[in-house]
Design a protein around this nucleic acid. Structure first.
Length: 247
DNA sequence: GTTGAGCGTT
């Protein structure tokens, strides 16, 4: 396989997804491919990006064809320094559909590792050992605490009075718990078409009655500036050549 | 332009 991430999940019939955390925000699938491919057959690599900025979130998903290979990669690449940062490789806990992995799929199905002390406990919880080392002494302050966001919000308001509901709302959805709730709610809505509207059609207008130019859909300039190729997800640099080549 | 807990797309 040359390129991944063509148009969604290729085929997850018996593939094992590995979650790579702590990767730099600049690390791309192309950088992870050679690393993971060396330890096994990588079926696909996907790096979730942010909808707003489009930047990597700091973690990636590597799909292996075989569990033993995935386990090997986890043991070999877990803790390795990539791009100046030690990445964390572990088996994905949830599936692509925000659903828990079924048993016998990704959890632990390595009869070979039985000899190891890691028979059934691939990992205590998270990187407790890492914390012990003092990797995260700064507490679990998230990426952007309220501090930064507060400043960002103010600054934003000064610029274009961007709807602040966008920032907190978007990040609020990060919790998968809300997904479940949302989904369930959606189903309920189907049941009763005459469901009470919970959200106003134009909440931002109420929030910003002063002036909210809808023309600025979403900083078209920024988007234009973002020369992020559409295959940013794919790790096929050759495609770019083909596309760049003259007719 | 930055950031650092976590779990994913056409």
């Amino acid at each position: 396989m040359s390129h991944f991430g063509r148009t969604g999940p290729p085929d997850i019939r018996d593939t094992f997804s590995l979650l790579v955390l702590n990767i730099t925000f600049r690390t791309t699938a192309d950088d992870l491919f050679p690393l993971f491919d060396k330890y096994g057959k990588v079926v696909d690599i996907f790096i979730p990006r942010d909808r707003r900025t489009g930047e990597s979130r700091g973690f990636a998903f590597v799909r292996y064809k075989y569990a033993d290979e995935a386990q090997k990669a986890v043991e070999k690449l877990d803790g390795r320094t990539v791009d100046g940062r030690d990445i964390i490789v572990q088996f994905a806990k949830y599936g692509p559909n925000a659903e828990p992995i079924k048993k016998g799929r990704i959890m632990e199905v390595f009869p070979k590792t039985e000899g190891r002390s890691r028979s059934r406990s691939p990992r205590p919880r998270y990187r407790d050992d890492y914390r012990d080392r003092g990797y995260r002494q700064r507490s679990r302050s998230r990426s952007r605490g309220r501090y930064d966001w507060d400043r960002y919000r103010e600054r934003d308001r000064h610029r274009r009075s961007r709807s602040r509901s966008l920032s907190p709302d978007y990040y609020r959805g990060r919790g998968r718990g809300r997904y479940d709730d949302d989904r369930r709610r959606s189903r309920s809505r189907s049941f009763g078409s005459a469901s009470p509207v919970r959200r106003s059609p134009s909440p931002r207008r109420s929030l910003s009655p002063r002036r909210t130019p809808p023309s600025r859909d979403e900083s078209p300039e920024k988007r234009s500036h973002a020369h992020r190729s559409p295959y940013s997800q794919s790790i096929s640099p050759r495609d770019r050549d083909v596309d760049s080549r003259s007719p």
